[in-house]
Design a protein around this nucleic acid. Structure first.
Lengths: 182, 182, 182, 182
DNA sequence: GATGAATGAGTCTTCATTCAT
DNA sequence: AATGAATGAAGACTCATTCAT
């Protein structure tokens, strides 16, 4: 039980942390409400089901993650620098979040084809990420744009796997080379 | 309920299918034994716990996946061709398994740091995959070896995400270019 | 949610419909307030508890049912005709209310001996019905009066059971014969 | 918690008592298992749902009730005496079961049209009761057969309502007269 | 070696009620 | 007078595991 505040926000915060750390199915509603310090029925006041809470979590994560990305890349002077800054953002997140990887890819392996809404958010998140690179690299070839995206994705996944920054650092170097020879 | 055969094998088969399709936590012990056509206590005869079944699943998947990889790459005449054949193997698996992606990366997002044994199998699977590429490309630079590995990984993950072969095909082309300029 | 009007009346209307259709325990407070288009706390403003709402429902039903009975029997010229008109009233109610039977007997099977007030309303409703027949048939023997009452009661119950008018029609014929031989 | 015995039977016994005494919706699964002295999951081993338990209860009650009826009427020498003995059976049940009335009519007011199976058992119980009278009175007119049935039904219902034997006794007298004049 | 029955702790969800505004 | 938010207790049901046979 925690301090009093906006219950809906506390529930979302608790769910965000737990779903991300432990996964969706491994996290029980009881754990969420205890962490949030909120009564069980209050959860169902604000979210009609556990799945609704999942969707809220994904949406919220989507927004904060991109807000962080834009903040982290804002200062970079050129598109190429911005791209590299995105990799630095990844390293920062790894440190902050103890190498839990990508919340969306993690969820992808837990949801079935039935949960269309969750899948839609996951896909739209990644589409927005691809757009981010495509727009920055609009002068480069589509092949290079996709190449950068794919390296970014493996950078997240592999650093989660090895609990180490090397995949991000290696991928960053590869991107640097890729953009240099353009 | 299915036909009579080796119960232990049938349990492993059922678990393999269900854990891979639905995830570990989303799959109940009851579903496994029903699919296997085996009594509940029989499961615990052969596997002391659900987690033990998980480990057996991962181990089994590891072996069959690599057996498939070696079979699929055996006919290729050169190391470069073998690498490309690995990407073709990916496409084949996507079709066979309806784009369920990598069983090991999927499990990675469900297990916590506590489940050391599962993590160990997951990591050793990926290490063996890295070795596969490193050995084939022993004449190339370590950077290229890693680059191919990273593209291979995103190829799996992204084709699961989009339920489409394009990420494998694109990654394959990039690898082709990478190896061509060597 | 419905149009604005007297909240207290709307609550009673909603409860009347739902308690009668689904039963008391099968009807939740949330369903009542949603049907009534009223806030939850407003319900507890007007009725201190769910049981109070039940009592109001029974009382209201008692009044409207007898109002209908008196209206339906008013035009009949003789006591005997009035008695028969009561059976016609039953048929009319069956049509209007889709053979839901007697709200009071239905509730009788849901309330325990503890809910004295509800029981009291139920019994007083039936006592008034007996009086209705007794007064109309004051020239007949007590045995006949009771006989008519009992046939009336089974007519309601059995038409609910079979969802058919035949029990009312048969009972009506028996009463006709009973009164004819007087 | 009670003594060890066949759990399935104990569950049915507990459900029989509680559903009959309190009604279906007013009885929780927790109460049933506590009364039966059985674990929750054991209930769901034997009965897949609460509704399945309800059906078992109705079926069981149907069988025991008719077994009692046949036993109670067996000794009577003539069909007419058997019919009257049925009314005596009712009085006996009222004493034994504290005027809880008819389990089937009570349930009728709790189940909705959706629960087809429960409705089917209820109706078949009453059809069998009608058959019982029809066969005994096969020499009488259909009108008399139905008349007896209807009086029998009100006898149960009204004695439950008033918690008194008079409705059974009155109905019995009416039937006596009815059969006497035949 | 194999099983069906049994279990305590857990799942997600809804209950009738109260409170601060 | 009226409300949306909040709650503890209870709802039906499932979990992974064990045990007697």
């Amino acid at each position: 039980m925690k301090q009093k505040a906006e219950p809906k926000q506390r529930l979302l915060d608790a769910a965000t942390e737990l779903f991300f750390k432990q996964g969706y199915h491994a996290t029980g509603i009881n754990q969420v409400i205890e962490e949030a310090g909120v009564a069980k029925a209050s959860l169902y006041m604000h979210y009609p089901s556990k799945e609704a809470l999942l969707l809220a979590f994904l949406q919220h994560r989507h927004e904060t993650w991109f807000a962080g990305l834009h903040a982290a890349t804002a200062k970079a002077k050129s598109p190429g620098k911005k791209v590299l800054a995105a990799f630095d953002y990844l390293q920062q997140k790894n440190v902050e979040e103890d190498f839990r990887g990508c919340a969306f890819l993690n969820m992808l392996s837990e949801v079935s084809d039935k949960e269309k809404e969750a899948l839609a958010i996951i896909r739209s998140h990644k589409n927005e990420l691809r757009s981010f690179f495509t727009q920055l690299l609009h002068e480069a070839s589509p092949a290079v744009q996709t190449h950068v995206y794919l390296l970014f994705e493996s950078a997240i996944v592999e650093s989660q796997l090895y609990r180490d920054q090397w995949p991000v650092q290696e991928a960053r170097k590869m991107v640097e080379r890729l953009l240099g020879q353009k």
